[in-house]
């Protein structure tokens, strides 16, 4: 019997005060709308909440008489659900949701990005050691490495600055790195935080 009455008739019946019409509409489209929401949010509870909010909007709009039968009922409800899904993702972006587990550590979420004092000290030490190692390189290799790594210059700029071809600058950079590795291995230097 339910499927013999079309949506627009049920909507008109509901607006006229027939609460049973809403029940039929909800039950008729429940699975389709909830599955649509779930396919986007992939969370059962969130899908249920959005479904509920969707129909609260539907109920309010219909009761206020603001519904215009321009399109069909289901696409209209789907559009409301779609907008609420977007709101859901916007809200989650501002306030990310984390689900606690046994191995969940709150400091992995709220932790400061900056290194702590110990790590900062280690980093400063590494920078200082590295600086001394670079000083050990031949002048031409050291200049290229400093311009590339510390001054962030392109190889084209380096070649213009030093008066050599790009290939020569690339070669010097390559040898600078090879020689740095050799010095590090030879002296058993550890340049790492871990």
């Amino acid at each position: 019997m339910e499927h013999q009455t079309d949506d627009s008739t049920l909507v008109q019946d509901y607006i006229s005060g027939d609460e049973r019409a809403l029940e039929i509409l909800i039950n008729r489209h429940n699975q389709r709308i909830t599955s649509f929401i779930y396919s986007k949010v992939l969370d059962r509870d969130a899908a249920e909440d959005i479904f509920q909010d969707t129909f609260i909007k539907v109920i309010k709009t219909l009761k206020k008489g603001n519904y215009s039968e321009e399109g069909k009922f289901l696409p209209w409800v789907m559009r409301i659900a779609h907008n609420l899904i977007i709101d859901y993702f916007r809200k989650n972006k501002r306030m990310p949701k984390f689900e606690g587990g046994d191995d969940f550590n709150i400091f992995s979420v709220i932790g400061d990005e900056k290194p702590n004092v110990e790590k900062q000290l280690i980093k400063d030490q590494i920078d200082s050691d590295l600086s001394m190692l670079i000083d050990e390189l031949p002048d031409d290799q050291r200049d290229v490495l400093i311009m590339r790594i510390y001054k962030d210059m392109s190889f084209k700029e380096i070649s213009e600055c030093t008066g050599v071809s790009i290939n020569t600058a690339l070669g010097r950079m390559r040898y600078a790195l090879i020689n740095l590795r050799k010095i590090i291995q030879k002296n058993n230097i550890v340049l790492t935080n871990y």
């Binding site: 039950n27 429940n30 699975q31 992939l42 899908a47 509920q52 009761k63």
Partner: peptide, 19 residues
């Protein structure tokens, strides 16, 4: 993503009562 799910009876009842 293709799973068919429905809102619970509790949610439907809430909506009808709300209405």
């Amino acid at each position: 993503k293709c799973e068919l799910v429905s809102a619970s009876k509790g949610t439907v009842k809430f909506l009808l009562d709300y209405s």
